[in-house]
């Protein structure tokens, strides 16, 4: 039986799809808590301190303690908050983050099973479509909280996301033109000779800068700039609702790293036998995640006007130029 919806590049039985979704979901939800403790450890080392080391060996059980604390907290709702929209917002962010994971390829088709959630012909547009829905999670959260800080944070997030989404799309367009396909699986297959980080180095840099802005990570964490806005759109949230926002941020980091690996670092390509493919993808993704933490520990937050002028006056023209040059080169060769 095939899916009733628009067709995919590689159709599989429904039960395989269900199993795959559960596996991806389980793996990511195991990785996210690990990421939180890794980030705190890494930040600690950067700042010449230990980081969490009380719960379990080397502090590795810290995320478990955090999760228990967040889940058992009281569900407090501020009086100004709007009843239905306010709790929906964090769920929306997590939903879109998890949905985007479906298109990350961890390997090609082996024994009739594709090592990815789904290979849609619209490929990366799927990622952008869910990205633009994720924006409503931030905006609703900020607006429905009924607080000034939340609202300002949400507005900053909105402006930031739409400013950097275009540069991000254009940065990927170079790699898409070189591969001649939007499908992430085909793009990885097209990189079996040379990874696109070499011919598309400008595109890679633009994508990473825009990716940092899209995930609201330092140095672009203006929507939740704690020195000025308390915690931005998440100010009024507590317990697991706040935890959902934090979790969504880590999932988005994972997705952005995964897209960067797919488009520029050759996806599952690497030395060794075929069964190592998913491991290679995970290793490369973790390298990017370390980069995220490294930059957070190193760079100070940019100013808001710097953020906007960087996005519109530097990244956008540069990305457009990159697309033009790539288009000419692809046509000539």
């Amino acid at each position: 039986m095939t899916l009733p919806f628009a067709d995919t590049n590689f159709a599989e039985a429904t039960w395989i799809l269900v199993v795959k979704s559960i596996v991806i979901f389980a793996v990511i939800f195991a990785i996210v808590p690990v990421l939180t403790v890794v980030e705190r450890k890494v930040l600690g080392r950067f700042q010449a301190r230990y980081g969490p080391n009380r719960v379990g060996p080397y502090g590795l059980m810290q995320p478990l303690a955090d999760a228990v604390k967040l889940v058992t907290k009281e569900h407090y709702r501020p009086r100004n908050a709007i009843p239905i929209l306010w709790p929906i917002a964090p769920a929306l962010v997590v939903f879109t983050g998890v949905a985007t994971l479906a298109i990350l390829p961890f390997g090609d088709v082996k024994d009739g099973v594709g090592f990815y959630g789904i290979d849609v012909p619209i490929g990366i547009l799927y990622f952008f479509a869910f990205g633009s829905i994720a924006f409503y999670g931030l905006l609703l959260g900020g607006w429905a909280s009924g607080s000034k800080y939340s609202f300002l944070g949400a507005m900053r997030a909105a402006a930031q996301l739409i400013s950097y989404e275009i540069s991000m799309g254009l940065a990927l367009l170079g790699a898409i033109m070189m591969a001649g396909s939007l499908s992430l699986v085909s793009i990885v297959e097209a990189q079996h000779q040379v990874w696109y980080i070499l011919p598309q180095f400008v595109g890679f840099l633009i994508f990473m800068v825009a990716g940092f802005a899209e995930t609201n990570r330092a140095p672009f964490d203006l929507p939740e700039a704690d020195a000025e806005l308390v915690a931005g759109y998440g100010t009024e949230y507590g317990g697991m609702r706040y935890g959902s926002y934090a979790m969504a941020e880590y999932i988005e980091m994972f997705v952005i790293s995964g897209v960067a690996v797919t488009f520029f670092l050759g996806g599952w390509h690497g030395p060794g036998p075929g069964w190592l493919d998913p491991i290679w993808v995970i290793v490369k993704i973790f390298a990017f995640l370390f980069l995220f933490m490294w930059i957070r520990a190193t760079l100070p937050r940019v100013r808001y006007d710097q953020l906007m002028s960087l996005g519109w006056k530097v990244l956008l023209p540069l990305a457009t130029l990159n697309v033009l040059v790539t288009a000419v080169l692809v046509t000539v060769t």
Binding site: A6, D7, V120, P121, I122, L125, Y126, F128, A129
Partner: peptide
């Protein structure tokens, strides 16, 4: 079956 239109 209009995937591109849906995404756009």
């Amino acid at each position: 079956y209009a995937q591109f239109v849906a995404a756009a």
